[in-house]
């Protein structure tokens, strides 16, 4: 592979993007940092308070609980979606009309507006009017996701799996399609079993897309807001209140600018750290593949 020529004038081509993203990303972020060190009563009455809001936020029990719930939820969802997505991707037919129909079907949940995802699962899972809820109650199990925290959790996870597993399926399918048939033939000649084919032929080819799948799913899952908001409203009690909803409650519900901003900065740093770690892994993996 030839190396790319160096040309500083390329900055001119990147400039529009930098300006747009600076306007919609950097300016707001700097504003958040400014808010986070002040007590803001109204636009003209502001006091510098240093790191007080950060200290409060970092020691806020409700934030710890929300963070803990968030991590449990994100890792549970990932632990189901990744293996399931790869399993389905392996089982999909590779070519033909059926393959493209199934792929379109898989893509549909990704294109449903986030609040409609919540609505769909609301009317699907309710005990009185929902197919799922009625069916479970019909089995003699007293299922009610608006009253039982455990049921609420299971419903949320089922919803997230419904919503996002397809992303892993599509990524995995694309990764599997890139494996030359010769690899499979060679494995057949060696008398490799299904598991060995998966382990030694498919998995190495899937590593790159899998890292991306983990990155995207983890990041998107950490910012989940709308779906639980519609489905459970964070309840029963606070048992399904995750980070973004906790933040939105402080920011828009109570309009506490300073504390909300301090929390935002902490939240952003957490995301930045994870994003950097995974990006480094992805880039390192890609460079090893090139070499």
């Amino acid at each position: 592979m030839r190396t790319k020529p160096e040309r500083q004038a390329a900055w001119l081509m990147v400039l529009p993007v930098v300006l747009v993203v600076a306007f919609s990303g950097v300016v707001p972020l700097m504003t958040v940092v400014n808010y986070s060190v002040q007590d803001i009563l109204d636009v003209d009455t502001r006091f510098f308070v240093g790191f007080d809001w950060y200290r409060d936020a970092l020691r806020d029990v409700r934030l710890h609980e929300a963070l803990w719930r968030q991590l449990v939820f994100s890792f549970t969802a990932l632990a189901i979606e990744l293996p399931l997505g790869i399993l389905v991707a392996r089982c999909l037919p590779r070519q033909g009309r059926a393959a493209s129909l199934l792929l379109v079907l898989c893509a549909i949940p990704l294109l449903v507006p986030l609040n409609v995802v919540g609505t769909i699962w609301q009317i699907f899972a309710r005990g009185d009017i929902g197919m799922l809820g009625a069916a479970i109650n019909g089995l003699g199990i007293d299922y009610n996701y608006t009253r039982e925290p455990l049921h609420a959790w299971m419903t949320l996870v089922a919803m997230d799996v419904w919503h996002w597993t397809s992303l892993v399926v599509l990524l995995g399918f694309a990764g599997l399609s890139s494996i030359p048939p010769a690899y499979y033939q060679a494995a057949d000649l060696d008398g490799a079993g299904r598991w060995q084919v998966f382990r030694h032929v498919e998995l190495p080819h899937l590593r790159a897309v899998l890292l991306i799948a983990v990155l995207l799913r983890l990041m998107d899952s950490l910012m989940i807001y709308t779906e639980p908001f519609v489905l459970t409203g964070g309840g029963p009690g606070n048992t399904t209140t995750f980070l973004s909803q906790h933040l939105a409650t402080i920011a828009v519900g109570q309009f506490d600018l300073g504390p909300a901003a301090a929390f935002s900065v902490i939240y952003f740093l957490l995301i930045l750290l994870l994003c950097w770690l995974f990006h480094t892994l992805v880039v390192a993996g890609a460079e090893r593949d090139d070499a």
Partner: peptide, 12 residues
């Protein structure tokens, strides 16, 4: 953007 002196110095 609700600037304060410390944050202005920080970003500068």
């Amino acid at each position: 953007m609700a600037w304060t002196l410390p944050t202005a110095l920080f970003f500068s």
